[in-house]
Design a binder for these strands. Structure first.
Lengths: 133, 133
DNA sequence: TTTAAAATTGTTATAATATAACATTATGTA
DNA sequence: TACATAATGTTATATTATAACAATTTTAAA
C-alpha cells in the first residue's frame, strides 16, 4: 500500500473508531461500535478493543467505567486521562465530561491520611441532567 | 423451615456472600465468589449477582467499577454508597476505601458550570500503595 | 535504500462478566 | 390465615473482553 493514513497520529482502525465515538452524542459500547464498523471491514472484537485500548491510552477517548462505554475526550486539560470527571444522567444516560480546573486541582493534589498522593483518578457523578429534571 | 436468619437484616445468601467479602483483604469478583460458595449451596451466577446487587443497594459493599470487583464498606459515613472514594494500587491491586470528610463534603457540594448538583458520586484514585513504592 | 524492530491488522476461538425468564419457597404483615 | 413481597433455585443465554497466532504495514536506524 502506498497511501498512508498518518497526517494525524491515528491508524486506520483507530481513526474509524475514534470518528464514530467523536460524532456520537452518547457513550458507545464496544459491540455497538463493532456492529457500526463492520461495513468498513472491522469484523472482530479484538480489532475494536485494540483500537479502544490505544485511544484510551493516548487520551483521545475515555472509558465510562460504570457503563462499559466510551466517549471522546472533550477536555484539553485532562492530560492523557490522568484526571477525568464525568456527569452521568441516571435517567437518559447522557454523559458529559466535566472540565473544572478547581476540581482537577483539588483532586490532583489530594493526599490521603497516610500522606499518599495519587497519579491518576476517575470521578463519576450521578444525578439528573437538566432535561430530565 | 423454622430457624430464620434474621437477627440482622441479611438473607442467607446475602450473609454468606457478605461474610466472604468482608473477610477478604482484596476485592472479590463475582465468579471468584461463586466458586468459593459452591460448597455452601450457592451454585449459579444469578444467586451471586442478586446478593451482590442487594448488598450494593444497601451499602454493605461497594463495587470497584474499574475492576468489576467488590469490597465491604469500611466507611460509616458513606450513606448507602452515595459518596464513595477508593485508592487503588496499580501494582498489587490493593484497594482501600477513603474516608475523608473534607473530600466527601467537597464532592457532595460540587456543582458544575451549569449549577447542577449531583446526588451520588464514585471516585477512584490510582497510584502505588506504600508497600509497592 | 535495505532491513530489522515495532506497531497494526486480521482471524478464530474462548474466557469472563452479567442477566432473562420462570418456577418455587420463605418471610413479613394485615 | 392469607396475601404481598422478598429471596431462592435453575437453565439458558446475553454481553463484555482477551488469548493466541499469522500476516502486513510503518518507522527509523544502519
Amino acid at each position: 500500500m502506498d497511501k498512508m493514513y498518518k497526517e494525524n497520529n491515528l491508524s486506520k482502525n483507530q481513526q474509524i473508531i475514534f470518528d464514530l465515538i467523536d460524532k456520537s452524542s452518547e457513550p458507545l459500547k464496544a459491540y455497538t461500535i463493532l456492529f457500526s464498523v463492520q461495513k468498513k471491514g472491522i469484523k472482530a472484537p479484538p480489532q475494536v478493543y485494540r483500537a479502544l485500548d490505544k485511544l484510551v491510552e493516548t487520551g483521545k477517548i475515555h472509558k465510562i467505567e460504570s457503563k462499559n462505554a466510551f466517549v471522546a475526550c472533550r477536555n484539553s486539560n485532562c492530560e492523557i486521562s490522568k484526571a477525568t470527571a464525568f456527569s452521568i444522567c441516571e435517567s437518559c444516560e447522557m454523559v458529559d465530561e466535566i472540565n473544572d480546573d478547581k476540581l482537577t486541582k483539588y483532586l490532583t493534589n489530594f493526599s490521603d491520611k497516610k500522606g499518599t498522593k495519587y497519579k491518576r483518578f476517575n470521578l463519576e457523578f450521578f444525578g439528573l441532567c437538566k432535561k430530565c429534571k
